[in-house]
Amino acid sequence: MQTNEQSNHQTQDPVLSFFNRVISQVARVLAAVMVMVIIWGVADVVYVLYQRLMAPPFMLLEIKDILATFGAFMAVLIAVEIFHNIILYVEDNHNRQLAVEIVLGTALMAIARKVIVLDFNEVGAEHVYATAAVTLALSVGYYLIVIRRKGSNS
């Protein structure tokens, strides 16, 4: 049985071994692109914050500006979490349990970002209920997979 040097997947088929190497390289490219997105996101946050602070009234932010800034910060943090998930696939010893934890954590962060920037005057009740249902489902999933398992290991 042959072990791919880039993955812990074992296969006897040379075609599947080749595919595993291709996927590993694709994940590396995605990681590099994600680093550029993160840097671009940080630069955008700094630029937008600078613009809003320099606009009249000078050095003051309105609540909508603060919420937009929080949303931009959260978007960068979500990109960082996605980068960590990509790295799990690139590393030789990736842990599927940890990958699920990171995906759930990233999804919770994304829904939290949505809730933070949600303008309740602009959306209908069904959108708010749907957001609440997704938040509840992700929270329960995170509890069952991450918190409860860690509590039982202690």
Rank of each mutant, 00 (worst) to 15 (best):
A32Q: 12
A32S: 11
V33Y: 09
V33A: 07
M34F: 07
M34E: 15
M34N: 08
I38K: 00
I38F: 08
W40S: 08
G41C: 06
G41Y: 05
V42A: 07
V42M: 03
V42S: 03
A43F: 00
A43G: 14
D44C: 09
V46G: 02
Y47D: 04
Y47C: 00
V48F: 01
L49I: 00
L49G: 06
L49F: 01
L49P: 01
Y50H: 09
Y50R: 04
Y50S: 04
L53A: 01
L53C: 05
A55S: 08
A55T: 09
P57E: 13
P57I: 13
P57M: 13
M59K: 05
M59T: 07
M59R: 06
L61I: 04
E62I: 09
E62P: 06
I63W: 11
I63Y: 07
I66F: 02
T69P: 01
F70T: 00
G71P: 07
G71Y: 00
G71V: 02
G71S: 04
A72C: 04
F73A: 09
F73W: 06
F73G: 06
F73R: 03
M74H: 04
V76A: 05
V76R: 06
L77V: 02
A79M: 10
V80S: 03
V80A: 07
F83S: 00
F83C: 00
H84N: 11
N85M: 10
I86Q: 01
I87C: 02
L88V: 10
L88M: 14
L88Y: 10
L88D: 09
Y89G: 11
V90H: 02
E91H: 05
D92W: 05
D92Q: 13
H94A: 07
N95S: 14
N95G: 14
R96F: 15
R96G: 08
R96P: 11
R96N: 14
R96W: 11
L98T: 13
A99P: 10
A99D: 10
V100S: 14
V100H: 13
V100D: 10
V100L: 11
V100I: 11
I102C: 02
I102S: 05
I102Y: 01
I102M: 08
V103T: 15
L104H: 07
L104Y: 00
T106A: 14
T106W: 02
L108V: 08
L108G: 13
M109G: 04
I111F: 03
A112M: 05
A112C: 09
K114M: 14
K114W: 09
V115S: 12
I116G: 00
I116A: 09
I116D: 00
V117N: 01
V117H: 07
V117M: 09
D119V: 08
D119K: 12
D119Y: 07
F120A: 15
F120K: 13
N121E: 15
N121R: 12
N121K: 14
V123H: 09
G124L: 02
G124W: 04
E126H: 09
V128C: 01
V128Y: 01
Y129K: 14
Y129Q: 15
A130G: 13
A132S: 11
A132T: 12
A133C: 07
A133S: 07
V134Q: 10
T135Y: 13
T135H: 02
L136K: 13
A137G: 03
A137E: 06
L138E: 04
S139M: 13
S139K: 07
S139H: 03
S139C: 15
V140E: 05
G141N: 12
G141Q: 12
G141M: 06
G141H: 12
Y142F: 15
Y142I: 06
L144C: 11
